[in-house]
Design a protein around this nucleic acid. Structure first.
Lengths: 107, 107
DNA sequence: TTGTTATTTTAATAATTATTTAATAATAGA
DNA sequence: TCTATTATTAAATAATTATTAAAATAACAA
């Protein structure tokens, strides 16, 4: 279970055009991931800026990295994403999925 | 289907402590929503600041409002949230949910 | 009308974030 | 070793965002 601070960090990390694209690209790449430079080239982002964005995504726990020679491979990490989705939908319809049209008490 | 710009707007809107709490509170309240002032009081936020955050969430399409006398009721709008979740999980495991351990080509 | 309540807007400030450039580290191969 | 490659870090700047206080708007009631 994620804390609200962790969820805000994950949402902030994804709330930026380049990082959202990076994440989606890595999601599509699966566990093997993609080398940092390759991601940068694919998305037409400078290496330094790419590194900055990787750091933000890493710090939020959305991606992980492994070194392979001179290359650093980044891959999507689904744990935080799943926790974030759970947090966002947790109280949806007071816990009754699909029942979004039913009024809830106490409001 | 949401554009990436719409998704970034929705993520940005939720990527802030107060707004994340507002959204979750409204989700728990269901379609009837809650009056602006009541939300502000509940979350101990000034009316002006609350208004600023409502505007951000509204602009992202995450909440909607209806006037009732002197009160403005805000309610969660699930359409954009659902679109956002779909966008984020769209390419997960190349579209094969649960298959997150299988390596994908072209990366 | 006048006063009261509920909410929004505006303006100012403080804080955070994204991008660029230049410099630094780490690895691989000649 | 020396050089090229890959990636990260640091410093500077530009842009965006959150918060506060004050003023403005809108709806209702006396």
């Amino acid at each position: 279970m994620l804390t609200s601070t962790q969820v805000v960090a994950a949402l902030s990390a994804l709330a930026q055009h380049t990082r959202l694209e990076v994440y989606r690209l890595l999601v599509a790449c699966g566990p093997q991931g993609m080398a940092a430079g390759q991601v940068a080239e694919r998305l037409k982002v400078s290496p330094a800026n790419m590194s900055f964005h990787f750091k933000t995504l890493s710090h939020a726990g959305l991606i992980s990295s492994r070194q392979d020679g001179r290359f650093v491979y980044y891959a999507a990490n689904f744990t935080v994403m799943n926790g974030m989705l759970a947090y966002l939908t947790e109280n949806c319809c007071a816990g009754n999925p699909g029942a979004c049209a039913i009024p809830i008490k106490q409001c």
